[in-house]
Amino acid sequence: MSAAYPKAMRADLQLIADMIEPGSRVLDVGCADGALLDYLVNEKGVDGRGIELGADGVNACVSAGLSVIQGDAETDLFDYPDHAFDYVVLSQTLQAMRAPKSTLEQLLRVGRHAIVSLPNFAHWRLRWHLVVSGRMPVNPTLPYEWYETPNIHLCTIRDFVILCRKMRVTIERSISLDRNGVPRRFGRSLYMVNLFGEQAVFLLRT
């Protein structure tokens, strides 16, 4: 693990980092300020690249010496050759894509593995909030009001598992995170994970 690393990373990013073999080739899609990439490059000797839509994020990354391009994953992923990377990472972004399914296909074409993390819309707090107040939930994982949220394709852990099955994508590892960022492996019961996991991280391959 990474106790020695000076900057504390988001819990899901740490889980993702732990899934990646040292020295591999990684593309981080939607790499934001480059926290994960920076860790992977400097702590795991990864050949890391990133794509980020926001100019501020790109400037921060490149200014920090990271190889990041300003671009839109939904169009730019098509440029890369097949299996150009060992891992393609998409953290907390799939739900903001216009076409999540085709994005997922691209991730698995460009990478030998894809690592996807997403918020779970079936978490019991969200269900409870919706039932009791009758309003779209706003919480630390989903901090936006419905009218300004970039999350246009929210799904549940169960939805995502079903999509993978439909696309014949193998889920090699799956871990859920509770409210405090404590990770739990998916046990027997998808029902329980879907109820208590606030977000989930999947290691996928075709």
Binding site: D47, A55, I69, Q70, D79, P81
Partner: peptide
């Protein structure tokens, strides 16, 4: 990107 080169790209405002 099509040759998986190591590239950074920034558009400066």
């Amino acid at each position: 990107n099509a040759v998986a080169a190591n590239v950074s790209f920034a558009e400066i405002v």
